[in-house]
């Protein structure tokens, strides 16, 4: 206690000085036009700089997550790479595999409405065209609907008009994926006949019945199912693997044989 008093006696005048100066400063800034302007200007400069720095720090902190994602994707690609020569030997040679991949970044995204689109930073200059499939490293994201020279808009899976042909993994029966516009973490799959045995957790993937997605790209996992009212098909509820709330890097799938296939299909 005595030492506290001693400190106060020794340094109290500094506190008093700061206190008086603080009052004076508040008075200056409030009652003098010129100083007020300078103060407001420099504080906006200061806080502008601070918020910019904090955004930079935020970017830096999310590097770890981005890194993890890239690592996972690397691992997956490496696995595919190892598998590919075997697949090629067994099934197809390179010239027959129709899809090529165009990487892109999502620069705008919406999940709020029932008609959701997102925008990517690749357009016709990068050979992106309408009706190309868009996937993330996790799975299906959407279909390109409009293309300008540098940008393209993509109809998200979370659009009530989106329709994607899908199958349950390791089964050939197919149905259609669509979105009912309610929750952004639930899709519906209809058209799977009821005699198949289902269980929660089964993976639903594309089946290659269109020129948009090749066979075997994950869409989601089954979370609930029941027999529909007409009693022939299942109503299946699916959780999409793609997290539409944070789309970052995506890949546009360009099918080089699309025209040929569409031509012959429309001739029928």
């Amino acid at each position: 206690m005595r030492s506290n008093l001693h400190i106060l006696r020794k340094y109290g005048h500094i506190l008093l000085f700061l206190f008086y100066e603080m009052i004076a400063f508040v008075l200056i800034v409030n009652y003098n036009v010129k100083q007020k302007e300078i103060f407001l200007h420099s504080s906006s400069l200061f806080f502008g700089a601070v918020s910019k720095k904090s955004a930079e720090v935020g970017d830096y902190l999310s590097l770890r997550q981005s890194n993890d994602e890239l690592l996972r994707e690397n691992a997956r690609l490496l696995k595919d790479l190892i598998r590919i020569p075997r697949i090629l030997q067994e099934e197809l040679d390179t010239s027959r595999y129709p899809y090529e991949v165009i990487p892109a970044r999502v620069i705008n995204n919406s999940i709020q409405t029932t008609h959701n689109y997102f925008t990517i930073d690749k357009g016709s200059n990068d050979r992106v065209a309408t009706n190309m499939g868009v996937i993330t490293s996790d799975g299906v994201a959407g279909i390109v609907t409009q293309v300008s020279t540098h940008y393209a808009t993509v109809l998200s899976l979370l659009h009530i008009n989106s329709r994607i042909s899908a199958s349950i993994k390791e089964e050939d029966y197919f149905g259609t994926i669509f979105w009912d516009g309610k929750a952004f973490d639930r899709l519906s799959l209809k058209g799977i006949p009821k005699h198949i045995k289902l269980q929660n957790g089964l993976i639903v993937e594309t089946n290659g019945y269109s020129t948009i997605f090749p066979r075997g790209i994950t869409i989601g996992t089954i979370r609930a199912f029941n027999i529909s009212k007409n009693g022939v098909f299942y109503d299946i509820s699916i959780e999409p693997v793609t997290d539409f709330t944070k789309l970052g890097h995506v890949y546009v799938l360009k099918n080089n044989f699309a025209k040929e296939r569409l031509d012959i299909e429309s001739d029928e």
Partner: peptide
Amino acid sequence: DVAYDSLGLHTAALTFTAF
């Protein structure tokens, strides 16, 4: 400051001088 209509300016300066 009240006389000079510059509230705070002379106050801050003279407080500093006193310090």
